[in-house]
Simulated scan of single mutants.
Amino acid sequence: MSRLLAALLTCVAAAALATGAAFGIVAALDAAPEQQNVPLVTFPDPPAQGSSSTPDPGAG
């Protein structure tokens, strides 16, 4: 019976440890400041699609 009690206490302790770790991770993520959403690479805007001197390759 003592082995069963030890197994039960081990399971309860493991569940409590896992729950505490989960709450700790969530608390740590909430405490961290949000990162700015700034792109590392930017590309120039393409020229406006209007009248051009080159023919459209798909119009043939």
Rank of each mutant, 00 (worst) to 15 (best):
T54Y: 15
N37A: 10
T54A: 15
G20Y: 03
Q35K: 13
L17I: 02
A6W: 05
A6Q: 08
A16H: 01
A32D: 04
T19Y: 13
L8T: 06
G58C: 07
L9R: 04
N37K: 15
A28K: 08
A15N: 03
R3T: 10
A15W: 03
T42H: 00
A15T: 01
V38N: 14
A32H: 11
D30Q: 14
A28R: 12
L8H: 04
A16E: 05
Q35C: 04
P57M: 00
A31F: 11
P47W: 01
V12W: 06
A21F: 02
F23R: 02
A7H: 01
T54S: 13
P57R: 04
S2W: 04
S51N: 01
P47N: 08
D45C: 08
A22L: 12
P46S: 11
T19A: 15
P47M: 11
A15P: 02
Q36W: 05
A14Y: 02
A13R: 03
G24V: 02
A59T: 09
A21K: 03
A16Y: 00
D56T: 07
A22Q: 13
V12N: 01
C11S: 02
S52C: 11
M1A: 05
G60C: 08
Q35I: 02
G20C: 03
L9A: 09
P33C: 06
A48H: 09
C11P: 01
A59E: 12
A6S: 13
S52K: 09
Q35D: 09
A22H: 04
T10V: 07
S53V: 12
A15K: 03
A7Q: 00
G60D: 11
E34Y: 05
Q36L: 10
S51D: 08
I25M: 13
L5Q: 12
L5N: 08
D45S: 14
A31D: 15
G20I: 03
C11I: 05
S53W: 10
F23Q: 10
T19E: 05
A14E: 01
P47E: 06
G50C: 15
